Simulated assay, not measured.
Amino acid sequence: MTEPLELRCGDRVVGRYVHRPELPGELSPRPYLHPVRTLGGVPVTELMPADHAHHLGVSVAVPDVEGHNFWGGRTFVRGQGPTARDNHGVQRHGGWLRRTDEGFTEKLSWTAGGRELLHERRTVDVRRIDDTAWALDLTSALTNTTGRPLSIGSPATNGRPGAGYGGFFWRAPKDARPPEVFSADADGEDAVHGRPADWLALAGDRWTLVFAGPDPWFVRTGEYPGVGSSLAARERLALPPAATVTRRITTGIADGRLGRDGAAALARAMGGGPGA
């Protein structure tokens, strides 16, 4: 494995980016951030946990790009359910466009079956908010390089209701009790899952994550703690030849358990939308 890139917030290492991982094919190898920590040193990511070995800290993962799995694990097949298939893609690091202690811009190639489907320009930046919180800003721009139409799907578009995941995904650590999850006007997994919100907070015993992004949120707290975006929440996302889909997700990482007022203040400080 190539030496990870350390990301710093002032004098503290708050994350490590593994851009050339050595992983088995069934995990859909891709770059990832792990460990990510609060300014106080509390870990807020988990890597290859026993319950879902294909969860890789913070990554960009899509379960269905024209039938190819860039998520890892089994593929949901309509009429069959989760099925083991030899359809896993790989995200390959193609070089740095910018690289500093506080962030980077990277080129990636999404390949499957020996050919490139997507080219990605990924930008990650670290920003200090105050003495107890910092922000991770991730922008992913995916361009169809095949010369023909592509579409992005999810288990939901393939027949599994409520499973519209695909895009940005953050696997949080599993503590003794599940984290709380809430938005500005809703509480609990059932209330926030599958819905857009200007910001969404996941609060553990010693940490809080506040997410801001444009898509409906995929949320798990009971089975495991994780939050992701949904590029194809209910319908496949069409991507014509040479077209680009861009998503920006900003995450506030704070020490301690924040309530709604504290999470809203953190969302405002990191620019989390008009309703923050």
Rank of each mutant, 00 (worst) to 15 (best):
P241F: 13
A191G: 07
H55K: 10
L209P: 00
L136I: 09
R268V: 08
V14C: 06
T143C: 11
G256F: 12
Y32S: 07
H193A: 12
G213T: 06
T246E: 15
A263R: 09
V13K: 02
R257A: 15
T157P: 12
A276M: 08
P29T: 07
A112Q: 11
D185G: 13
G204D: 10
N87V: 12
Y165T: 00
Q91H: 12
R98F: 07
R195S: 13
D187W: 15
G103I: 03
V58W: 06
A238T: 03
Y224S: 08
N69S: 07
L202N: 03
E66V: 05
F76H: 15
Q91T: 08
G228C: 05
L239W: 01
H119A: 15
D205K: 14
W96Q: 00
G113H: 06
P4A: 04
W170Y: 11
T100S: 15
V36T: 11
Q91R: 15
E180P: 00
P82Y: 15
K107P: 01
E22I: 13
T145I: 13
P29E: 07
F211R: 03
G114N: 05
A191W: 10
F211A: 12
H54N: 09
V219M: 08
G153A: 04
R260A: 15
V210K: 13
R98A: 14
G271S: 13
E120Q: 10
E235H: 15
G79K: 06
L200R: 01
A186T: 02
L209C: 00
L237K: 03
A197C: 04
P196K: 11
W217P: 01
R92T: 13
E6T: 10
H54V: 04
T251A: 14
V192M: 12
